[in-house]
Design a protein around this nucleic acid. Sequence first.
DNA 1: GTCCGTGCAAAGGATTTGCATAATC
DNA 2: GATTATGCAAATCCTTTGCACGGAC
Lengths: 144, 144
Amino acid sequence: MSEDKLENKDLKKVGLKVTLPRLKILGILENAEQRHISAEDVYKKLLESGDDVGLATVYRVLTQFEAAGLVIRHRFDTGHAIFELNEGNHHDHLVCVKCATVAEFVDKIIEERQIAIADKFGFKITEHCLYLYGVCNSCQEQTS
Amino acid sequence: MSEDKLENKDLKKVGLKVTLPRLKILGILENAEQRHISAEDVYKKLLESGDDVGLATVYRVLTQFEAAGLVIRHRFDTGHAIFELNEGNHHDHLVCVKCATVAEFVDKIIEERQIAIADKFGFKITEHCLYLYGVCNSCQEQTS
DNA sequence: GTCCGTGCAAAGGATTTGCATAATC
DNA sequence: GATTATGCAAATCCTTTGCACGGAC
């Protein structure tokens, strides 16, 4: 069973036609060395591969993917949105303010506390995000 | 000792001249029924009070206040920034996705876990934010 | 009087939209 | 063949900037 078929199924399942731009973008999200990528960077990668896709299409497709639950959109403090494939395993993020690298983590205790807090306030949580901004290990070593 | 004097001191302390727009904006941040307010809404409030302040000035002043540590800027999922007075007591936020009301909370256990996680990753945390998005109590009651 | 702050209008960056063409089903 | 996608350019939203004038110190 090829990966293409899998992606095909994913797209059809959410009611989107299987088109080249969508497959290409899915492929980039799956294979990028950095799981967390901006629309602009997806676009650049498409151009590098010689694929003639417009930036508007990248945004449209990413937005559709988000609506379909295939993708998660983050709004870090960087001014532009960052996207990542939604593989079902919820996690939170550490963002390096120097090199913009993103690390993922999960903490059961934090998750539990969040639910408890929401309960206390009578909130029905639909979503939550925890961003830790800081300087990562390798950036600390550089005296810049 | 009047409140004006206090504000005066705050502004001078951070090296900003005491001007009418700055005092007015500080006043709005202190007295708004909603502590969490957008630049646009600050601007509207100024107009309502008959104060002739430009939107650009509102942004400039809020940015200066942020740099001076008087104000905190949030980037919720709403597309525009939200500002609140920085009164020194760190807290996290619950945001209602229906009415955009913001509630604040602090949880010692979560704060501790965050530090532990950062340590594990070798991150030097500079900042962190935890946003819980959901439907607040009063919005749940409306069947809309 | 000097320097900083302001208003206005124009610029900027990220994202969205209108429309005619082209692709999928 | 009908419907949905795409590319391009123009539009939009939020925010920032340039510049000449006005106000604080």
